[in-house]
Amino acid sequence: MNAHTVQTVPAERRYGLRARLRATARSEWVKLWSVRSAPAVLEATAVVIVVGALVLSSGYRSGWASLSASERAAFDPTYTSLRGIELAQLFVGALGVLAVTSEYGTGLIRATLAATPQRTQVLVVKGLVLGAVVWVVSTASSFGAFALGQRLFTGPMPHAALGDPGVLRAVLGGGLYLTLIVLFGTALGALSRSTPLGLAALFGVLLVLPLMVNLLPGSLADRILPYLPGEAGAQVWHVMPPSPRSLGPWQGFALFALYVVVSAGAVLRLTRRRDV
């Protein structure tokens, strides 16, 4: 008799979306933590948010005397203590891009899709896992940065408390903004399938576009700026709107989310049809 028996999937696991999803999620979770770069990038994110608060808040503290009255009036203590996020978006965005492009670069994607032929599911679950991890890390860091920053604003400088209007929303918004950034990076990474191109696209949209628009005549720039993905999304972690034309925290955030959803939708459509 042949000693071999064909291995079969246990009956209770053969069907069922929930089991399938759980397996995909576990696989993505293991992949995320088993390479050195992800934990390092998340640590760097946390460090940059908190150190950013330290540096920028001390900058205002030491230079407060040299500010004009209008500059003092425009000072937003919550936003200032959270601005490390602007640097952290580089790390988080790169994490999102690389989560996809490194799989393409190494050819691991073929193994991934062989294990889970449901391509849409792989991408969505990858995004959910990344988003959840980044949300936890960046929300915690935002609270840390806020607390640290407010301790440095003493004497005549205004400082904020979580109970003040809009402040809790802004601090939570820091985590939400970075969560969308990692998803945006994942989508652009999947779209380009190349690390340099994906990074250039993400940072081009987030960082270069506003610089370009700022070169335009003031009235024109003011009209375009609020609708750029980065500027719109960042409203959610501002307490005072940066310009009279700003969209407002949740409207801006919703617009940014729309950009992310549209690019993710494009990717999902493409991924289903594209050869790996």
Binding site: G59, S62, G63, L87, A94, L199, F203, L207, L211
Partner: peptide, 29 residues
């Protein structure tokens, strides 16, 4: 690494100036 180099360039040439150029121009600045 191309990825790290590109990220670092964006950090140094686009994020850093936006972050610190408009801080109060004190002694450290």
């Amino acid at each position: 690494s191309t990825a790290i180099a590109i990220s670092a360039l964006f950090g140094v040439f686009t994020v850093l100036p936006v972050l610190v150029n408009n801080l109060p121009k004190g002694l450290v600045w």
